[in-house]
Write a protein that binds this DNA or RNA. Structure first.
Lengths: 350, 350
DNA sequence: GTTGGCAGTCTCAGGCAGCGAGTGCTAACC
DNA sequence: GGTTAGCACTCGCTGCCTGAGACTGCCAAC
């Protein structure tokens, strides 16, 4: 398990082995590798190299007389090579075209993200997901109250970037529709253009003041606004598509049954996925988490490819979850492309 | 495969065998059955009866020296006995209590149904679902237009029974907010209290007339209404919870991987589930579809327990999908209870 | 019609041999 | 020193056999 830098040739052998294993799913023999173009050496030499790679923990043998398969560490090295080499050559155009086809030219925010998860699934054939940024920093445009029943109101909030969200709020007492309209006018006049987080703070501050003012209209407006804004932090919108890919038994059952179970539970409780990503999403660009690198032991059987989009505190994420033996090169391209495309959509709409 | 009526004792043996198999998952031996209380005969007699049952296709042997397991036909006979015997003794109270706890006292329609699917999953530990009735016959209460961007409007439709639905509509040209309010007022005054299907017809009829009238306000109102009502028939709302149960490997992997794949695809394209149910949902009460009775060969590995709620043309459905080897008795109770509970909720809100 | 008894059948687990794939090692070579 | 050919060795896989165990089917007695 030494970490001496690998020679160029050794790295080519490792990459070749990983690619071959991803393609076939079978342990790779030295004879197979030396038949590959690019490294003109005999199988005996390959065997020496493979023995070194095994010492270093990059490959392993299921049993003595079998070929080698990559370990999670081997995948990691391979993926790092990929990420290095494609720093310059990103191409989002094909994914972006698909996304535009799916979502239209100026989609609503939630439609854009659900389309993104769908496209990711279609292109990668793995579970695709898209996560909205926290609403905290979204720019408040307008609020509108639609009376539903005597004491119930549908609150529609519109934020910049075609970002529409709805919520039903129970106000204890019946309120006149005209009062609701006035309340909305008041809020729109006061707060339009501010980040939602600021709006919330201002609303709370005013509610403190109003206690002594006895202005009924403002009171209703502010209380409705408070209840609406309360929900903002708690749940992040998550869009997932392609769960069926997890049970796609092309040749082998991509992931184990217990991993499958964990993933399906994650799809049910989407917030768990958000939590999972929080741990890995810090920098820009594509992040890859492979098998044993997962903190949750149940997820050791699968890999995660994720990229963030947006800037500053308005960051969301798109990505793919699939078996450790996945086509990383392709998947990384696709996820990166999707992140770029989503970011571009959002920029165009400001 | 004769269909002579079974003697009382033979039926008790079959029922006992099915129950035992559902409990253990192992082929049931004659010796095991004769130890059960209720039928005081020796194992040899049981063997004779089992041989008859096998001739008739109700049970089968995995191999010569194994016990018997029920065939799908055997499950069918057992389930029919269950359905017969519980005609009178339905008890929805426990499910209803859970549903009330989950959904609150006067939930919105979609929240009620998603709670129903959740409760069905929790109680049965199988995939639970709830399907909304067609909107066609819902009684229109109010429509409201919320401007989102220059040429885009969020249309909120409220129907009787806390049934709120939203849709974003693109109108080609920018429209003044005040015009939208007037348009909504016009539509509400004209159509409130009518079934949605009638509203749609009336809207189309008026649009024909208006062609010659050149009243811009009405024109906008009617065109918005038409676009909104267009979507009504196409998609039925479907709520699903508990997909993870399908991969719950307690002892055996409940359903085969290919069945699992089909079911997950059905969860993705929910309308396929609606289509599936159309074939089975005609009468009132609980319907059970077992294994090979499914038209789709991919679904042969699982069973469906479903009950409809509501009356006349306002019928929806709730139900459960699980392995053929499921606790039918319990599941039927639960699904029946859920249907009764949902119906009661809806009745209380009119 | 029911029952006890017994032979027959089949699965399952364990042990063993032969085969083949693929390696590790060594000695020769460049 | 790195590379290569050759060869012995290892080990999983398959097929075969055997004994044990689980049930049944059948028959004769009740």
């Amino acid at each position: 398990m030494t970490s001496a830098p690998l020679s160029d040739r050794t790295r080519r052998v490792l990459a070749s082995l990983v690619r071959e294993y991803i393609d076939t799913g079978e342990p790779v023999a030295s004879a197979v590798l030396c038949r590959k173009p690019g490294l003109g050496v005999s199988s005996a030499t390959i065997r020496n190299i493979l023995a070194q790679l095994e010492d270093m923990g990059y490959v392993s043998q299921p049993h003595t007389s079998a070929g080698r398969i990559p370990t999670d560490l081997g995948y990691r090295y391979y993926v790092d090579m990929l990420l290095d080499s494609r720093r310059s050559t990103r191409d989002a155009s094909s994914v972006e075209a698909r996304l535009r086809e799916q979502a239209g030219d100026a989609p609503l925010f939630d439609h854009l993200l659900s389309s993104a998860s769908h496209v990711l699934f279609e292109v990668s054939h793995h579970l695709g997901f898209a996560i909205a940024p926290s609403d905290e920093q979204a720019i408040f445009q307008r609020i509108e109250f639609v009376p539903i029943s005597d004491a119930r109101v549908l609150v529609v909030t519109v934020a910049r970037g075609n970002h529409v969200s709805q919520k039903v709020v129970d106000i204890g007492e019946p309120v006149e529709p005209s009062a609701l309209t006035q309340a909305a006018n008041y809020l729109n006049a006061e707060f339009s253009g501010l980040p939602l987080a600021d709006v919330r703070q201002l609303v709370l501050a005013r509610l403190e003041q109003e206690r002594t003012l006895y202005d009924r209209l403002r009171d209703v407006a502010l209380r409705l606004a408070r209840t609406t804004l309360e929900g903002i932090e708690t749940a992040t919108a998550v869009y997932i598509d392609g769960t069926s890919s997890l049970a796609d038994a092309g040749d082998a059952p991509a992931v184990s049954l217990s991993t499958l179970h964990t993933l399906l539970r994650m799809v049910e409780e989407k917030q768990r996925l958000v939590k999972l990503l929080d741990a890995y999403l810090d920098g820009p660009g594509v992040a890859v988490v492979i098998g044993a690198e997962h903190q949750d032991p149940q997820l050791r059987g699968c890999s995660l490819v994720v990229a963030s989009y947006g800037e500053g505190t308005r960051r969301g994420a798109v990505g793919v979850i699939g078996p450790t033996r996945m086509q990383y090169s392709r998947t990384i391209s696709v996820v990166d492309g999707a992140a770029v495309a989503v970011a571009r959509f959002l920029r165009d709409q400001n």
